[in-house]
Design a protein around this nucleic acid. Structure first.
Length: 273
DNA sequence: CTGTTCTCCTGTGGGC
DNA sequence: TGCCCACAGGAGAACA
């Protein structure tokens, strides 16, 4: 699933091919994503020049002067660029195509259709999906001091807190688990009972794991044009995620799995307290 | 406000 | 080899 690092790597991969280009047309074959793709998307986006491809949390934003396309890859979404000469026929789950003014096609595929594609005029950051997001984890506004202040008196578990996008944007299940392991914090610890120094360590762990993943993805990044599969997706060497029953990479004790809010948590019972 | 539960969807993998 | 089914999960919506 595309986590924040994958989305960022995808953004970096496609931006050079899209920024400065005009979108000639859009073809929507299946509009039933998480929310319906606007029926008049093609009319609205046709002729629009994309000046910038940016990211907020796990949302990709294709910005023009006065409007923006908001794109979320959900669980199974992917983007690929197809050159005009390749003429690849769309597959079953290729729901949307954008034709650029150089003939390139940007194709959105999403088998599970948890993704989203919306059009917002005006200031895109005022869109309800984006307006209430917390700080970006990789910016300096996201600090241990902030998390500490924000969590006094709160009983929610730290793992679930990290996955709350209004607290910090775009930290998903994998990186919440991984960061808690590196910070040596048990995922079920109530957020209000964690000290300032531990929050500082946790925030650093979040930044480090995300940055490491982005670097790993960037280093293996292939060209997005005419590439098969899902360029931008990459398999990380995880410390706890998906490693139930396997030995902890630090101490050898078996990694445990538990359920927190309908979501799997993975942790080392020896390293994380 | 807080915290919890529900919901959308389909590919994958384990069991038999 | 084929079939069945639990499971996975981002995150907004709904609810207590």
């Amino acid at each position: 699933m595309p986590e924040l690092p994958e989305v960022e790597v995808i953004r970096r991969g496609i931006a050079p091919h899209i920024e400065g280009r005009r979108i000639v047309s859009a073809t929507v074959r299946n509009s039933m994503l998480r929310w319906p793709v606007p029926g008049d998307l093609g009319l609205k986006i046709g002729g629009v020049r994309i000046t910038k491809v940016s990211r907020r949390a796990k949302y990709l934003l294709f910005e023009s002067g006065e409007a923006a396309l908001i794109l979320h890859l959900g669980m199974s979404g992917s983007l690929r660029l197809i050159s005009v000469t390749a003429a690849v026929p769309p597959g079953k789950h290729d729901h949307v195509d954008f034709v650029l003014d150089d003939g390139t096609v940007l194709r959105f595929r999403d088998p599970r259709r948890f993704g989203a594609m919306l059009w917002e005029t005006g200031d895109v950051m005022q869109h309800p999906l984006l307006a209430k997001l917390g700080p970006e984890p990789l910016t300096e506004t996201f600090t241990g001091d902030l998390l500490y202040k924000q969590t006094r008196g709160r009983s929610v578990s730290i793992k679930q807190l990290l996955m709350n996008n209004s607290v910090v944007a775009g930290v998903g299940n994998i990186y919440a688990n991984e960061a808690l392991f590196h910070a040596e914090i048990h995922p079920m610890t109530p957020a209000g009972r964690i000290s300032l120094s531990r929050y500082r360590k946790l925030v650093q762990a979040i930044k480090d794991t995300l940055n490491l993943a982005i670097e790993a993805g960037g280093s293996t990044l292939r060209d997005f044009v005419n590439s098969e599969g899902n360029p931008g997706y990459f398999q990380q060497q995880y410390f706890v995620y998906g490693r139930t029953g396997q030995p902890c990479r630090k101490c050898g004790v078996e990694i445990r799995q538990a359920r927190q809010g309908q979501r799997s948590s993975f942790y080392c019972p020896h390293c994380q307290k």
